[in-house]
Amino acid sequence: MLSGAAGGYVVVRLRNIAQALGIGDQFLHLATAILAEVAIPFQPFQRWPLWKEIGTNLDANPGLSTGTGYNAFHMDLVNATQPPDYTTLLCVRPDPLGAGASILSDARAAVSRLSPSSRALLADMTYRYGSFFNLSDVGEEYRPFPVLDDKPADLGFVRFTAKMLIESGLDEAHAHAAKELADQMVAGQVSFTLQRGDMLIVNQHRWVHGREPLGGGQHNVAPGDRRLLLQLFLRNSGAGSR
């Protein structure tokens, strides 16, 4: 389900275990052991623990992962030469207001629906996004980078984040090609709401992810009751030699 032309993501439902154990150290040890059967857990952000919290911050930019608005399609660490092969999101608390569905899209399928001229523009080393500091085991900063590379799908990436449409300072042609790709991703998206104990694993070589807006009225929800995910990254064995 995670590899092959028809695969790219999976949800592992550990709800009963979360109910029995709670989501503390014992549960996280179990979840990490399960993920270690997929690939190697690693810690690219040295200022955060292996399981990085993605909470709900009412003061954050709404479009960020910790914000309350629409978090558009992206891959994680898009500006690293060796991004994580998999990103994992574990739901500790869903949005109590019933919103904030996870969204995913097959990036490879979206690319296949583009014109040859758009694909050629996306292969140019023109795109930029994000900063790069206090990171380890993800190679070097990649700036500028191409959205499309010439590697096979199991090695290369569709290096996309919708935020680069605003921050890259792109010329009209390259911006239009990236917007076309974004539109195709939205057209092919799937969505579902993670529940407590659900663990989403996304193959970053094939799929991108994001989030629908959280429910309105978050200021009426106690901070300890707001949506909370934990994120962990995985590296295929031998990936560092690529």
Score class of each variant (00 low, 15 high):
residue 2 L to T: 02
residue 7 G to C: 10
residue 8 G to T: 11
residue 12 V to H: 11
residue 26 Q to I: 01
residue 27 F to Y: 10
residue 29 H to M: 08
residue 32 T to H: 04
residue 32 T to D: 07
residue 34 I to G: 03
residue 36 A to N: 06
residue 37 E to F: 12
residue 44 P to R: 04
residue 45 F to Y: 15
residue 48 W to L: 15
residue 50 L to N: 07
residue 53 E to Q: 11
residue 58 L to Q: 09
residue 59 D to A: 15
residue 64 L to S: 15
residue 66 T to N: 12
residue 69 G to V: 08
residue 70 Y to Q: 12
residue 71 N to C: 14
residue 74 H to M: 11
residue 82 Q to T: 13
residue 88 T to S: 14
residue 90 L to R: 03
residue 97 L to V: 02
residue 97 L to D: 07
residue 97 L to N: 08
residue 101 A to M: 02
residue 109 A to F: 15
residue 126 T to M: 10
residue 127 Y to T: 00
residue 130 G to K: 12
residue 138 V to D: 00
residue 139 G to T: 03
residue 144 P to H: 13
residue 145 F to H: 03
residue 146 P to A: 15
residue 147 V to Q: 08
residue 150 D to K: 02
residue 151 K to N: 08
residue 157 F to V: 09
residue 160 F to N: 03
residue 161 T to W: 10
residue 167 E to G: 00
residue 170 L to H: 09
residue 170 L to N: 05
residue 171 D to R: 01
residue 173 A to Q: 11
residue 175 A to I: 01
residue 176 H to N: 13
residue 177 A to C: 05
residue 184 Q to Y: 07
residue 187 A to P: 14
residue 190 V to G: 12
residue 193 T to I: 09
residue 194 L to I: 05
residue 209 H to M: 07
residue 212 E to V: 01
residue 216 G to M: 05
residue 217 G to K: 13
residue 218 Q to W: 06
residue 220 N to Y: 08
residue 228 L to Y: 05
residue 229 L to E: 00
residue 233 F to I: 00
residue 233 F to W: 11
residue 233 F to E: 03
residue 236 N to R: 15
residue 240 G to D: 04
residue 240 G to C: 00
